[in-house]
Every structure is written in C-alpha cells, then in structure tokens.
Write a protein that binds this DNA or RNA. Structure first.
Length: 122
DNA sequence: TTTCTCACA
DNA sequence: TGTGAGCA
C-alpha cells in the first residue's frame, strides 16, 4: 500500500499555507530548505510547493529547534539513520553512535560527520 | 496578492 | 532571523 506515501509526498501547499500550518515564518521555512532539512518542489514559476511530509517534518524541526537543537544536528538526525527515529528497533550501538554524533554537533565544535563514522567510539 | 531572491541604516 | 526592495 504505497499510495498513502505517494499522496503524502505530493507537493500541494504554498509557503503561505505552510506558514499557517507550522507557525513558522517564511524566512525560517526557506532557511531550513537552504540547510537541506526539507526539499520542497518548485512550480514552473519558481514557487515552492510543500507536501504533507514536508509540513510534518517542519513541525518536527520546529520542536527540535525549540529544544535547542542546532540546524546541523537536525540535519544529521535526518541524514544518518535509515530507520529514522522513534518506533523502530535500533541496536544499542546505533543509539550510541547517533547520540554521540548529535551531541558533538550540538556543541558546534565538530564538523558534520561526513566520513560516515568509520570507527568506534567509547 | 503572494512569493522570490538578495542584501543590510 | 527580521525586513524592505524590486520582480514575476
């Protein structure tokens, strides 16, 4: 049943609608796009169009920001784990790795782990 | 009217 | 991040 997923990915909201739905400023929404936290589509006239998934993610991002997360940390949060967040089985090592990474980036002293994390950290 | 990009008394 | 300019 992949139809739902498809519909959730349909870009149907204008930035104005997204602003109301997320209570974020257009500036913020565009900024998060610039940081690759979301990737809305564009119309033939260069207008941004957001999907249900985009709005959903924006809502999450809003919470993370409120909790003090760095855009960089959030970026890695979405980039790294394939099994995403909550409800999925993660091994202890996965959790430790993800946490380690996010905590480091949180401080802003480390570059976003692009090496993909080759080694172990204890 | 709304959104876009760019730039900052 | 906000805000205003000048377009589309």
């Amino acid at each position: 049943m992949k139809e739902k997923e498809l519909r959730r990915s349909l870009a149907v909201f204008s930035i104005g609608t997204v602003m109301k739905l997320t209570d974020l400023s257009a500036r913020q929404v565009r900024y998060y796009e610039e940081r690759d936290l979301i990737t809305p589509q564009r119309t033939d006239t260069n207008r941004r169009m957001y999907s249900l998934n985009d709005v959903d993610r924006l809502l999450d991002i809003k919470d993370y920001i409120a909790e003090g997360w760095t855009v960089q940390a959030i970026y890695n949060h979405y980039k790294k784990p394939k099994e995403e967040h909550e409800h999925k089985p993660l091994t202890d090592d996965d959790v430790r790795r993800i946490l380690y990474n996010e905590i480091l980036n949180q401080g802003g002293f480390v570059q976003p782990d692009e090496s993909g994390y080759s080694g172990q950290h204890h």
